[in-house]
Amino acid sequence: MKSSLTKTVLALSAALGAGLIAAPAFANADLAQKKNCMACHAVDKKLVGPAYKDVAAKYAKDKAAVATLSTKIIKGGSGVWGPVPMPANSQVSEAEAKQLATWILSVK
Results as ranks from 00 to 15, higher is better:
1 M>G: 02
5 L>F: 00
5 L>E: 00
13 S>N: 08
16 L>V: 00
16 L>D: 00
18 A>D: 00
20 L>E: 04
23 A>V: 03
26 F>I: 01
26 F>T: 04
27 A>R: 06
28 N>R: 04
28 N>C: 07
29 A>V: 01
29 A>T: 00
30 D>H: 02
30 D>V: 06
31 L>W: 06
32 A>I: 05
35 K>L: 15
36 N>Q: 13
39 A>E: 08
42 A>D: 11
42 A>W: 12
43 V>W: 02
44 D>V: 04
44 D>E: 13
47 L>V: 15
49 G>D: 14
49 G>C: 12
50 P>W: 11
51 A>T: 11
51 A>H: 13
53 K>L: 01
53 K>F: 07
55 V>M: 15
55 V>F: 13
56 A>V: 05
58 K>C: 13
59 Y>T: 13
59 Y>N: 15
64 A>R: 12
65 A>I: 12
66 V>H: 13
67 A>T: 02
68 T>H: 04
68 T>Y: 03
68 T>N: 12
68 T>W: 00
69 L>N: 03
70 S>M: 03
70 S>W: 00
71 T>A: 14
71 T>D: 08
72 K>E: 10
72 K>N: 10
73 I>E: 05
73 I>L: 15
73 I>D: 03
74 I>F: 11
77 G>A: 10
78 S>L: 12
78 S>W: 15
79 G>I: 08
80 V>T: 09
84 V>P: 09
85 P>H: 11
85 P>N: 06
85 P>G: 10
86 M>S: 14
87 P>Q: 03
87 P>G: 07
90 S>N: 15
91 Q>E: 00
91 Q>L: 10
95 A>N: 12
95 A>M: 07
105 L>K: 02
106 S>T: 05
106 S>P: 04
106 S>R: 00
108 K>M: 11
